[in-house]
Nucleic acid binder design. Structure first.
Length: 183
DNA sequence: CTACGCTCAGATA
DNA sequence: TATCTGAGCGTAG
């Protein structure tokens, strides 16, 4: 699910979150709890932008080699990195990730630490954990130094969320032998 | 200040 | 190999 706000001046959308749900039931609950407005707005600028965004994500998921981050910026969609990552440390991590880890590449928490000159590997993981827009900010491309996957969307145990991380890497052409185990 | 975490290297069996 | 332990450090409360 993608949540956003529609901005009036200039007319564009501000991306809020991208979330995954294990069951449809969980999605419905989330919508009710947060009182989300699901009305379709055809024939509007808003609809056009959203359609472009969804088309982009679908293209990416079907294997088209494109930088979601760059393409989405080109659509004029507001991502507000600085608001989503308010601290200097988290901005360093995310900016490194965006600017240096391209489609089909993987890196490790340890590598990022070396590049930004810190040993706070777990803290780097915590930044990723707080990434509200996975896929677009490609934290799925960051794995552990020993070749195992590491966590994804707040989870470190073997579960559906790590499978999503693995699926995304497979889509980008990462092969099993670039990872240590089947996980 | 305390507690926690998408980590890591080293030790142990 | 698998599991445990402490170091390490940014962040939220």
């Amino acid at each position: 699910m993608i949540t956003y706000r529609f901005l009036k001046n200039p007319q564009t959308i501000s991306l809020n979150k991208i979330q995954f749900f294990k069951k449809e039931e969980d999605l419905v609950k989330y919508i009710e709890k947060n009182n989300l407005d699901l009305v379709k707005r055809t024939n509007s600028i808003e609809f056009e932008i959203i359609k472009n965004l969804v088309d982009l994500i679908k293209a990416y998921l079907s294997g088209k080699k494109l930088s979601l981050y760059q393409n989405i910026k080109d659509l004029g969609i507001d991502i507000s990195i600085e608001k989503k990552f308010p601290t200097p440390f988290s901005q360093k991590v995310i900016k490194y990730l965006i600017n240096n880890v391209n489609y089909g590449e993987i890196t490790t928490y340890s590598d990022i630490g070396k590049k930004i000159n810190t040993r706070a590997y777990r803290a780097i993981g915590n930044v990723m954990k707080n990434n509200p827009i996975p896929l677009i900010i490609p934290c799925h491309r960051v794995i552990r130094k020993n070749g195992t996957l590491g966590g994804f969307m707040g989870e470190t145990d073997d579960n559906w969320q790590k499978n999503i991380k693995l699926d995304l890497l497979k889509i980008e052409g990462i092969t099993q032998n670039q990872l240590k185990t089947s996980f």
